[in-house]
Design a binder for these strands. Structure first.
Lengths: 138, 138
DNA sequence: ATATGAATCGTAATGATTCCTGTTTTTTGG
DNA sequence: CCAAAAAACAGGAATCATTACGATTCATAT
């Protein structure tokens, strides 16, 4: 997902172009990993010292609903990252040191769903945690 | 995991047999699903109105570390359930209505790990959410 | 039965997230 | 360009889950 695409989606849904949204989207576009609301706030305070969590969470939720951001819970905290535009369903390896992710294209769900007739599947979560090559101590 | 086995593990690790621990373990042994600290507290207050969250969380964490309970985050809240004694690694389908679970024996990790050489895998989470047959409206 | 450390209680503190209200900003149309 | 309406925002209070802490009680080995 790039900035132009994000703004197109926002515009299509009648969301206004504000400084705060520009800052949030810019932050995610230059950080290809899961980020917390606090990290977003710290970044935004450079330009807007009075930014409130209300604004940040409201926009993060909006972006997630529009498919601009992806969200996941890590250690009980909400984390967000720019939506990957792989064009297909996928999962992530998440580095526990630097937070960077690596896409996992293989999804095991079809194989699993076969064994769950009579169940109504609403969703699933598949994440792998560890250290990426750059973060493994020599 | 049954009560005897849980007490054996606790004893082996020099943990004392207290009323609170008995109540907590009993609650999990009769509820085969993921439960929150609050649900545990509500149950325990029948016998012990003054039970504190400190006691509950401390014991839940202890039980988890000893492998007596399994833990997962659902909607940013810690949930616990009695450790399944299937003898082998597995995952869960979790009903979003009643909380009951169904074990998924197939684990996709071996297949995935092959595609992640140079990565140091520490863990993974694979959960499926939906409605179990009993909770699907007719 | 008693000593000792573990476990607990009661409550306060914390941290993430949400809610509320009045104000500001963006957009739109005259 | 200017004004009105709606959306977005700031600031702070409130909430919720969880953790921390000092004082007290309890479990168990001797």
């Amino acid at each position: 997902m790039n900035l132009d695409e994000a703004w197109r989606i926002l515009q299509e849904n009648q969301f206004k172009r504000t400084k705060n949204r520009e800052a949030i989207l810019q932050f995610f576009s230059i950080n290809d990993r899961y980020l917390t609301a606090l990290e977003v706030k710290n970044f935004m305070e450079d330009d807007n010292p009075g930014i409130s969590f209300d604004t940040i969470y409201r926009n993060l939720s909006t972006f997630e609903e529009l498919g601009i951001l992806e969200e996941t819970d890590l250690n009980g905290e909400r984390h967000f990252r720019m939506q990957c535009n792989l064009g297909k369903h996928h999962h992530h390896f998440i580095c526990t040191a630097c937070g960077k992710t690596r896409s996992i294209l293989h999804c095991p769900m079809e194989m699993i769903a076969v064994n769950l007739p009579d169940y109504e599947i609403e969703g699933h979560k598949f994440e792998i945690y560890g250290k990426c090559p750059a973060c493994i101590p020599i």
